[in-house]
Amino acid sequence: MTDFKIHHRDGDGVSIIELKGYLDAHTAPDLETAFQKLLNEKKYNVVVNCRDLSYISSAGLGVFMAYVEDIRKNMGDIKLTNMSSKVYNVFDLLGFPLLYEIFKDEQEAVSRFKEIKK
């Protein structure tokens, strides 16, 4: 089957999740686990780096919807960065850019969190 990997690292009070490969109905539970872990650890500032994400299905998009509410309730947010045009197209079709802040670069998203903190 298609490959999917999640890499998680922390930097400056922001949790960064790097996605790699195909995020579909089969691999969506992996991302759910990652988000649940962040919630448990009370880490609400999340940047999802989609640099190596080659495909996202509706089930994959659903994962963001499932957790964004809880994260925003805790004054946090999910910000998306480094999308390929193909992946961006999927987000765009569904109108996700209205719901999420999408940045070209991971650093921009991190500094955006810092601005809000100040």
Binding site: L93, L94, G95, L98, L99
Partner: peptide, 30 residues
Amino acid sequence: GHCPVILISGDTSELVKSSGIGLGLTDASQ
């Protein structure tokens, strides 16, 4: 939030992609 409709008229073709957002994603006002 759905795939754009393809309109073929004579020799021209267009992906009709009016602005919109998926059902069940956000509240009424947005």
